[in-house]
Write a protein that binds this DNA or RNA. Structure first.
Length: 444
RNA sequence: GACCCUAUCGUCCAGCGGUUAGGACACCGCCCUUUCACGGCGGUAACACGGGUUCGAAUCCCGUUAGGGUCGCCA
């Protein structure tokens, strides 16, 4: 009763893809709504028949859901201010057009209908940009905008304003590309006798070279992150940092934390270049924190996709194998190369590493270790580690001298999970077999 | 072209009249270490330019330049 409840909306056009800038606009709207306990509305702007409203809408819905941005009203969520598809709101537009006709704010021109712009100064009180003044007095510079075509279809600027008004939107948070259109929108509200909402124009997302990121540019489609193996929390975190900051130099922030801190006043006015390297860093930060279950699910899928066949192995083995990789990767797609050795006995050893580690001097050392492994009462991580260290000590060498050849013999690579852990997971039989095989070759 | 927005390291941010101009990513060293990754330490690197205002300007004002946006019967 004391204040109007906040209502914001994300109003994408179903073009078949969701632009990463659009995703951030949705995110900022969502953050604003959640911060203030307001309502987040999803409205589909499908006035153009040419736009596919089936699969194209699904791309938007899937993208928003993936990011975790839930809407309170809109497709699939219901709401009493619908319909939430512009294609279904023709009656409402006709009604508002009548109001403008009655008040003398529109006129016909070649079959279409134009809105008579007031020839005056219009100030846009923008929550991000401050007061921005536009002089609409010259009709040659600001011609009366069309709001309805001869075929009866509606023009964006009109329906956008009507919908925001009819849906009780209190704050219009959108891309800066709309700032120059806003005086016309404000004029429309006034002609309708409705108080304009608050406006907040957020800066655009740019390509690394500073140009506007548009449809065709790399990384422009949110879907590329979904299919690219990114963790949604990493993408959300990164997007939050593009044009907004908590002001305390923190970079990694949980979404709930951003909801708590988010404020339109803290939004930057400068366009921001998309920095894929920083996103990837955050991806690594979140990958490190993956729960065991999620890591295993992601890892299994990645193995299958790469043609590594984990299904022939016991569930516990796959799980244990994948978990030895925790904290070591950014993208699940790195796992087949990193942990593939668990699932095949045909290791292709790195030639350079072989030349370095399978040297004559190491051979007796590895043989001794092999015998020690064979006699171990238990073949677990701790025993294996102790065995290697004791063996190295008795031979008067550092553990590394044994570690490297064993790793190479058992995994075929010089990089991989912790040796002690991977040996335990691999199991004594396979470890001994792989060491024997390596020992059977020539060690120059 | 007109109008509007913007201008701090390569990039993203901090700074809101007095700072050795800070952090993060990236990059380069060193350390830690069973490899890798992580982590730790250190380094390279910025106030676009020109005028003002002020005792004092990255911070305020004006201009220039540069970048972006808008000028549709696209959304």
């Amino acid at each position: 009763m004391t204040t109007n409840p906040i209502r914001v909306r994300f109003a994408p056009s179903p073009t078949g893809y969701l632009h990463v800038g659009g995703a951030r606009t949705a995110l900022f709207n969502w953050l604003f709504a959640r911060h203030h306990g307001g309502t987040f509305v999803l409205r589909i702007e499908d006035t153009d028949d040419a736009r596919n409203t089936g699969a194209a809408v699904r791309v938007i819905v899937d993208g928003l859901r993936w990011l975790g941005l839930d809407w309170d009203e809109g497709p699939g969520a219901g709401g009493d201010r619908g319909p939430y598809f512009q294609s279904q709101r023709g009656g409402i537009y006709a009604e508002y057009l009548d109001r403008l006709k009655t008040s003398g704010h529109v006129y016909e021109d070649g079959g279409s209908v134009r809105f008579r712009l007031p020839r005056e100064m219009v100030v846009v009180p923008d929550l991000v940009c401050g007061d921005v003044a536009f002089d609409l007095s010259d009709a040659a510079i600001h011609p009366d905008p069309t709001i309805r075509r001869p075929d009866g279809s509606w023009i964006f600027h009109f329906v956008n304003v009507v919908d925001d008004a009819a849906m009780g939107i209190t704050h219009v948070i959108r891309g800066e590309d709309h700032l120059s259109n806003t005086p016309r929108h404000i004029a429309l509200y006034r002609a309708l006798g409705i108080a304009p909402p608050h406006f907040a124009h957020i800066p655009l997302i740019l390509n690394p070279d500073g140009s506007k990121m548009s449809k065709r540019d790399t990384g422009a489609a949110l879907e590329s992150y979904q299919t690219g193996g990114y963790l949604p929390e990493a993408v959300v975190n990164y997007l939050c940092l593009l044009g907004w900051s908590p002001k305390d130099n923190r970079e990694k922030l949980a979404t709930e934390e951003v909801v708590r801190l988010f404020d339109l006043a803290n939004i930057n006015r400068k366009g921001a270049s998309f920095d894929a390297a920083k996103l990837d860093w955050l991806q690594g930060e979140y990958a490190r924190e993956l729960s065991d279950d999620r890591l295993v699910a992601l890892g299994r899928a990645a193995l299958e996709e790469a043609g590594v066949r984990p299904e022939g192995f016991p569930e516990d083995f796959v799980r244990a194998a994948l978990l030895t990789c925790k904290g070591k990767f950014r993208f699940a797609r790195e796992l087949p190369a990193y942990a593939g050795f668990y699932f095949t006995d045909e290791l292709s050893c790195d030639a350079e590493a072989v030349a370095k580690h399978f040297v004559a001097a190491n051979r007796p050392r590895v043989e001794a270790l092999r015998e020690r492994f064979a006699g171990l009462p238990a073949f677990d991580c701790a025993s294996v580690e102790a065995a290697i260290k004791e063996c190295a000590a008795s031979q008067g060498v550092k553990a590394g001298v044994l570690v490297h050849p064993v790793r190479l013999a058992c995994t075929g690579a010089t990089v991989g999970p912790s040796l002690y852990h991977l040996l335990e997971v691999l199991g004594r039989d396979k470890v001994l077999a792989r060491m024997d095989r390596a020992l059977a070759s020539q060690w120059p």
